[in-house]
Each structure stands twice: as structure tokens, then as C-alpha cells.
């Protein structure tokens, strides 16, 4: 069983590195705040970040074994379709997740 001292050190190291990665880039970018390139990147990166996060959360979906990612594909279609139609963030998430749980639990059960 890990000792409390070791666990505290692990938490401190993780927190310090995470905070540095989150805060330091602002200091580095500060002199460039008015540059057109940084403004351009600031406006265009969010779509890329979201795509990368979505792909990351889906990296373990099995595409070559049953159920071949079908429940996830259907849930994605429901989420995107609902959001384009109704633009209600909570509704899109809850409905997409519900479809995913029903399809996947059905397959597993």
C-alpha cells in the first residue's frame, strides 16, 4: 500500500507540472498578444482542440471486433443531429449518452 508521504509527493508533482503547463504559455505569449498570427491561431484552434479531444476519448472504441463501433457511431450521429437541430447543449449530451448506454448495455447484456 502506498505511503501517505509518497502519495502527497505524487499529487504535488502532478499538480505542479499541470499548473505550469496551463500557466506558462500565457507568459510566453504575452508579448505577442497583439500579433495578427496569435489572434488568428486563437480564433482557429478551438475547433482543432475539440476534434483532438473527441478523437482521444474514442481511441479505444473497438472497430474490428463486435460491435464494430456501431453504438458509438449511432450515438455520435444522434448527438450531432440533435445539436444542429435544437442547439441545446444539455439535451444533445443527455440524449446521445442515453442512446450509447442503451445500445452498449444491450450488446453487453
Amino acid at each position: 500500500m502506498p505511503e501517505p508521504g509518497y502519495l502527497l509527493a505524487a499529487v504535488a508533482v502532478s499538480a505542479a507540472i499541470t499548473w505550469t503547463l496551463r500557466a506558462l504559455p500565457f507568459a510566453l505569449l504575452a508579448p505577442l498578444r497583439r500579433s495578427p498570427l496569435v489572434a488568428h491561431l486563437g480564433a482557429t484552434t478551438p475547433v482543432g482542440v475539440m476534434a483532438v479531444l473527441v478523437a482521444h476519448t474514442l481511441r479505444d472504441v473497438p472497430l474490428t471486433a463486435p460491435s464494430y463501433g456501431v453504438p458509438t457511431a449511432v450515438a455520435l450521429a444522434v448527438t450531432v443531429g440533435l445539436h444542429l437541430w435544437r442547439r441545446d447543449i444539455v439535451l444533445s449530451i443527455v440524449a446521445g449518452t442515453a442512446v450509447h448506454v442503451v445500445l452498449l448495455s444491450g450488446v453487453a447484456g
Binding site: V47, L53, T57, L58, S92, T97, H100, V101
Partner: peptide, 26 residues
């Protein structure tokens, strides 16, 4: 028996990605 709840996180980023796209429609 309930599996697949983690899709909520995927759905969150999908939805916010669509909203980010709507800002520029690029």
C-alpha cells in the same frame, strides 16, 4: 449492467466543437 456512460464526455466535446465551428463556419 449499465455501460457506456463515459460517452457523455465525448458528447460534451462534440457539442462544444460544433459551437466553436459556428463562430466562423470555416
Amino acid at each position: 449492467g449499465v455501460v457506456g456512460l463515459d460517452f457523455a464526455v465525448t458528447a460534451l466535446f462534440v457539442v462544444l466543437g460544433i459551437d466553436a465551428f459556428r463562430a466562423r463556419r470555416d
